[in-house]
Amino acid sequence: MGVEIQVHVNGKSFQNEVDPRLLLVHYLREVLGLTGTHIGCETSLCGACTVLIDGHPVKSCTMLAVQADGAEITTVEGLSSLPEAGGGLHPIQEGFWEKHGLQCGFCTPGMMLAAVGLLRENPSPTHAQIRRALDGNLCRCTGYQHIVEAVEYAARKLRAHKR
């Protein structure tokens, strides 16, 4: 039996009838066609499926679509339309570009959303705080150093933007 849900994804409103067992990540990818949210481990460990729910990073493989009813969701596709992006790339996207924060790119969407969640709570994080905020996101290519630098780049840019 389907359940009616209404969600706001990247600023747009969607209404769908979904099977209660449908995971949020499958809803985003298969129903809405937003395939930027990746499926990695499916066991809440790797963080590739991280999205923002009401501004907070969560693992969309460990949430039912029905639990997101009424929620405001941001996926990687929505980063450039956030106000702080100013119509271009979001500062975190720019940071990953400038600091070479990726190699294969599979973990990148989740990394960026976890980082955006951090920077909203803490605009000036230390190295240790960045690493702690990305603790739930695994990268098998970079060794993390460039990712941390990408987040620092975004933090600087966002602080300058606010001034």
Binding site: S44, P57, G136
Partner: peptide, 9 residues
């Protein structure tokens, strides 16, 4: 506990 995403849910 876990990581940021886990602690949020």
């Amino acid at each position: 506990i876990g990581d940021v995403q886990v602690r949020n849910r």
